[in-house]
Design a protein around this nucleic acid. Structure first.
Lengths: 198, 198
DNA sequence: CCTACCGATCGGTAGG
DNA sequence: CCTACCGATCGGTAGG
């Protein structure tokens, strides 16, 4: 379990992320993190200012990565159905490829104190807003047909959230194939003609 | 915030459920629970055996309620599309009407110790299995058209999970109307002809 | 239902 | 990077 050699802010970040995901923020002590890195707990404070800062850093890196991946996936894509498919795929891919960060973001917002807390909520809301924008534009263009774009966008964003819990990277499907399935579900939810997967 | 008079196992259960949902199991002390009930922390042990037992009780009650509601909703319903719509509606209704229990079930399985833990996981899996059964029967009957029934059933089960976070009981829609929207999404995901809501 | 109290553990600091 | 240590808090018990 331990992976000594070369303690760094990065290494502390990774150890904390994994422990926070499996045991929770309050269920993880600085000593637990230190043990993974084979050092004493006080030594961690040479690399990170506090446990709370560590939590914020983990969530902030995760949100920036997700927002960046969403932007990259939509670059140059003009068809609104393609946009929704790609946005859904990149969202699910992020869930599958970064299960620990996503778990921390999902379960530990309440453990974040308030200078940090609102900043993370704002980024999460910005992500949701971008999905909603796509759904609304598709409805306005007559490409989508769904009674409540806002509810539909929440459903799309949420439906893949727990895929990391059952997904097996060495199983029947690749992460990309699972993401493609969810992309087709998204198009079906918004009532786009032809939501069947490749 | 406090609600004194008549401390009972029930009252402790309710106070603990609300605090576990908002602050987490490890972030809630027995003293916190006692304060809501306006008694001292040791007094709680006259009503409940331990904090861990309290957590298990909250999750077990929630799972039994959800499983019972699912059975009741499906009673006498023979059409497989109606079954999926009703199962999805009752699932989302449960999420909206019991937000605190659902939050605890979603975030605190890791805080449950192992005699209790597996029993809760088994009940959760049984719930998911019943949704999957409906999707598989619909596919076998040719009523549904979806490439991966298993993935579809996970998506259906998950898509309403966070609805409690944005749903406002005094807002534009009733819980029943929101549930109906998700019911139509479920039918669309499985490729049933006509998934548009009433 | 209370006060008094137990051993254990926590995040973080001092000082080197 | 370490040991030694701080004040605070934890779940739970004793005893009434």
């Amino acid at each position: 379990m331990s992976k000594s050699t070369a303690v760094s802010p990065q290494a502390v970040h990774v150890a904390a992320r994994n422990l926070f995901a499996s045991q929770g923020y309050r269920g993880t002590s600085m000593k637990d993190i230190a043990q993974v890195l084979a050092v004493s707990a006080p030594s961690l404070y040479n690399h990170v200012p506090s446990k709370q800062d560590l939590l914020h850093s983990i969530m902030n890196v995760a949100m920036d990565r997700a927002l960046g991946a969403l932007s990259a996936a939509l670059e140059g894509v003009t068809d609104v159905a393609d946009q929704l498919r790609r946005a859904t795929e990149v969202t699910v891919l992020d869930f599958l490829e970064n299960p620990a960060e996503v778990t921390v973001c999902n379960t530990e917002i309440r453990s974040l104190e308030d200078p940090f807390r609102q900043a993370i909520i704002d980024k999460r809301d910005a992500y949701g807003r971008r999905i909603l924008d796509i759904v609304e534009r598709g409805c306005a263009a007559g490409t989508f047909d769904v009674a409540e774009p806002r509810v539909a966008s929440f459903a799309i964003l949420e439906m893949g959230n727990n895929a990391k819990a059952w997904f097996d990277p060495r199983g029947q499907y690749t992460a990309g194939e699972v993401a493609a399935l969810y992309g087709s579900f998204a198009l079906r939810i918004v009532g786009h003609r032809e939501g069947v997967s490749p």
